[in-house]
Amino acid sequence: MILNIIGTWLAATLTLAIFSFLYKDNPFYKLAEHIYVGVSAGFWVIYVWAFDIKPMLIDRFLTTTGIEKWILLIPAILGVLMLTRWFPKTAWISRIPLSFTIGIGAGLGVTASIQGFLIPQIGATLLPLTTINNILLVIGVISTIIYFYFSKEFKGTWKFFSRLGIIFIMIAFGASFGYTVMARISLLIGRIYFLLHNFLNIIP
């Protein structure tokens, strides 16, 4: 019970300290910010140890046999190489795991984009022009693609379609903006409810 009360007071104080930033930067906000950043950074260190390094590397290395066991040495060595950054003379070695990771990211990104975005999006736009919705969708996609065409100057018809494209983009962004603002307001309501209900207990 007493721990609950302490927890509520602490959460409410930190919430108010963060909200105080709406007025201006102040020592209370700074304190809350530093606690938040410090605690979350510490939390991630523990998280990476408990959910990545220990179960996926150490435990698996100790329990598996054969090629599966020794293949784990590759990520382990790459991880250790990253630590060479601590020593200026050997810091260049850390570029090896770094380039390895960037290469994997770029390589996987190619097929992931084709498979996850390009093909499904083209597929979803192959529509007959028989309804207003379909006509809007096809024209919207075509004009938006034209807007993102970089190797041709916007002139004449091309300019008209690129402008139409940006209109479609902005309408979509406007809808997305309104929708997300609504979601954020519900988050604010949740926090204010916490202050008024759990902390001050003035609303049921």
């Binding site: 930067d25 700074k30 950043v37 605690v39 939390f43």
Partner: peptide
Amino acid sequence: TYLTSDQFGYAAGCDGIIMR
């Protein structure tokens, strides 16, 4: 520098840096 891998912790840290 590295701040934190927490979404809003990162936002709070960035905001602090910007203000200061």
